[in-house]
Nucleic acid binder design. Structure first.
Lengths: 267, 267
DNA sequence: TCAACCTGTGAAAATCCTGTAAACGCCGGT
DNA sequence: ACCGGCGTTTACAGGATTTTCACAGGTTGA
């Protein structure tokens, strides 16, 4: 059991003081918080795979209601909390009927805002099998969160729980370097003790299993002194590799990969 | 989908004025509202098949928190709204963390209370299919929900109620790994106590009966540290197995191995 | 090049999880 | 009251998994 599935929260609010405080607490709690522009198209929110959305519709002006309706309609599975300045009963009722899950009023204690976001995304998860996200494909690898299994060219990888969660985490963050502490925090659910090598050990197990069933592909890369990065690279000399190479004749314009701590990016 | 599935709400509150107003509105809205005594045992709440619970823990005195915790623990699927008199941030946060879904403060407009209860139970209903009850076929097995029976090659499996519900649940989610907590929650109707092994015991009973009447088929698979998965697999060496193998040389119906360029998936 | 750090590896030790069987208690029917 | 079926609880043994260790091998920066 994963004690606390990390919460992915997007915030739409111009009150920078409030957002700052919230960010700090969110980081401490291991959440992934991201502030996004108001009027961000709902499609982008979908792509972010959020658990919850906290927004102040005031900043949206008259468009607020329309936007709210659009978001609620497009993301029926998302926990939505409105955090507005003054508001009337009628407005709150209207919002809640529209699909908003909770409506709080500023000024509001950040801890309470956190707790309400948590409650909303907890409820959202109910009835789901822990992960309703679709299969994840990377290289020859397919990860099915709903099955707690990973497949390569037709066969199951036969991973243990930890191995699976580690692989899943890495694959979700494809291309990003994850620090050990971050990995540990997200997979184990609590902070890593000083000197703990568990992550390294599990990385090794994963590499072994991956190499055995899908030889030649480099999936997990070490960033010395930092952490690990997942990036499927076809085995040299294979047809796949040749195809890739043809597409990108010279070196990939890979912008130095960014080390991820607790913020996140889409996809 | 029925957007306005009737809401079954229980209210625990001594404020008769408030309850009366609420009752009136609830009736007008077609809800089923029932006022229940404070400190009603959670088991009875389970039996009521509620959507939501509205309660004022103040009347419970010091026992309030313990009661709240018990109710939240046992009925994780129930939408719980606390409606208290004065309360501190710390109290609200504590409640929300405990499992309360929303916490409102009196005096509060009954319309808002209604809207919040609605939001909470709307959320709760998400993801439930519940309706379809046609016969279910898997491998040599046929499950008839309308008869509470399962058949193999003509004969009834003769399952008890719990066994049947467990098998039915697993079969409905064919291919998916269900965690014990989820299984217990859905079959028993309330949360699994820590250390409860009932699910394992019933899995064993099922396996025994299945093996006896339909030998060689692996129906229920264990995912160590996770839960169980239902997936009928023909016994190796049988005609059925050979046929299946001929149809799918590599493995299951997998959309795997279509190599996708990272630039496409990343976006 | 060297020392100081990191990381990879293999295996033992410690934990945790599941299968299994048996005992227990509840309830309805006889 | 007795009996039999059913659901629940408990205990234990065998495995599977996770953690811990010690050491070997690499990498970095002075």
């Amino acid at each position: 059991m994963n004690p606390q599935q990390t919460i992915r929260l997007a915030v739409i609010d111009n009150d920078s003081g409030f957002v700052t405080v919230l960010s700090k607490r969110a980081e401490a709690a291991g959440w992934q918080l991201r502030q996004v522009a108001s009027a961000i198209p709902p499609e982008e929110l979908v792509a972010m795979k959020l658990n919850a959305l906290l927004l102040d519709p005031a900043i949206l002006g008259d468009e607020g209601w329309a936007y709210l309706e659009r978001v609620c309609g497009m993301l029926p599975d998302l926990g939505i909390v409105v955090c507005s300045g003054r508001s009337t009963v009628a407005q709150r009722v209207r919002g809640l009927r529209l699909g908003v899950d909770d409506w709080i009023t500023k000024p509001c204690h950040p801890e309470e805002a956190m707790a309400r976001v948590e409650a909303v995304s907890r409820r959202r998860r109910r009835g789901r099998t822990e992960a309703e996200s679709g299969p994840l494909v990377a290289g020859e690898l397919e990860i099915r969160p709903d099955q707690f299994q990973a497949f390569v060219s037709g066969g199951s990888l036969d991973l243990t729980r930890r191995e699976f969660e580690l692989l899943h985490l890495l694959a979700e963050a494809k291309g990003q370097v994850l620090e050990r502490e971050t990995i540990y925090q997200r997979v184990w659910g609590y902070a890593m003790a000083h000197g703990d090598r568990s992550v390294d050990v599990f990385i090794r197990k994963l590499r072994q299993k991956l190499e055995k069933r899908s030889p030649g592909w480099g999936y997990i890369h070490t960033h010395f002194g930092v952490g690990y990065r997942f990036d499927p690279e076809p085995a040299p000399g294979t047809a796949v590799a040749a195809a890739e190479a043809a597409l990108e004749p010279s070196a990939e314009p890979e912008p130095v990969s960014q080390v991820v701590h607790s913020s996140f990016t889409a996809g």
